[in-house]
Write a protein that binds this DNA or RNA. Structure first.
Lengths: 115, 115, 115, 115
DNA sequence: GTGGTCTAGACCACA
DNA sequence: GTGGTCTAGACCACA
């Protein structure tokens, strides 16, 4: 379902994390859907269970999934998640604008033809 | 002239690099100005000469400074640099927009009140 | 009669255990009342009979229920149970107070508006 | 400086975490003090560096320490930390009170001689 | 079967 | 030296 890119400089666990964030935010995975088991996903991505475990732990901390002991991991509702992601992206946008301003680049030069 | 922030998660060499990029792009340091010696800057920032060396190497690779063997490092002209930086920032901007689009976030929701 | 919350991080057998402890201490289930059969409860909660079995074993160990071989499980009298539970809660309370004291938090700051 | 208790049912990384939370909240370790290196602490506690790493990562996430790449981990200021810990303890206190109330235990019976 | 913790050991980036 | 990531493999609690 998701793919690893070994050329990508991001660590493997972050790629897994980002991949599933997207699947959940896009609604491909819906509330209470079962996540692949840690071992199964590790096999599928030819990586180590500990690496998948790290990604899942992070997804749980961020509220994307929840764990039922002995059963597996499930997708949380994506109610606030989209809003949080929106704020995250807005912050990235602001950061770019600030960098431009600091260098005296006009908003127009920066955004022309893009926005 | 520049300050390190140890709470900043970026590695120290990157902070040095970014600091001098800014000083050069803003025109605080001008063409053919002498850069502080590696040892002097390392002392001043209480960091390792290897770290400063790495930052300078990166600045040279990007065309911000040039090295005169036995003499030191000097600032290059910032002619193309500003254009390159502009393109860099425009690429970052595009990346944010693409991420938003992939999640079905409207351009308006993303930029409202910012741009 | 009791509900499982899969978002709850406690293991399922503990939730079952806690649920029946409450029902018995509150007097909803009275002395010699019959507990649901392990299979029936497992069905009802759509969980594994082993899990219910583990909860029942724990309830028996704590004196909440007793087993009649071949017949099923029954509620014990809740005479001492309430006192034991009270002591348990008092111990939890003491633990919180000790943690606060160790950090130099005054009893007043801790309890203001709560007790 | 901290000790592990192998009888303690909490995982090792949590004990390390809790131990250093206390040292920092009590002011034994002060802002910008250097934490022991991951390897050194692992040796000292005869545990694995990965386990210490997990504890440090959690301490960083909670704002107790910060990492300087290639240098080590340092104690953050404990400004808000004490307030957050106070709220945490107040929440624990509320939880105990609610459990008591649900069982019809009077506040007085619960707190007599303790508070 | 499923997740959580831990060990031993490797390799890398950074200072 | 210092932290970060990853692998291989083990053992445990839980369902």
């Amino acid at each position: 379902m998701i793919k690893l890119d070994f050329m990508d400089s991001r660590p493997i666990y972050e790629q897994i994390e980002a991949g599933y964030e997207d699947l959940i935010l896009q609604g491909v995975l819906q509330e209470n859907d079962k996540m692949p088991s840690i071992r199964a996903l590790a096999m599928q991505l030819s990586t180590n269970p500990n690496t998948v475990q790290k990604a899942y732990a992070e997804l749980e901390r961020k509220g994307y999934i929840y764990t039922v002991k002995g059963r597996g991991n499930y997708v949380s509702g994506n109610g606030n998640l989209k809003d949080e992601k929106l704020n995250e992206l807005r912050d990235e946008l602001k950061a770019v604008l600030e960098k431009a301003e600091k260098l005296g680049i006009s908003k127009d030069d920066l955004t022309k033809g893009i926005i």
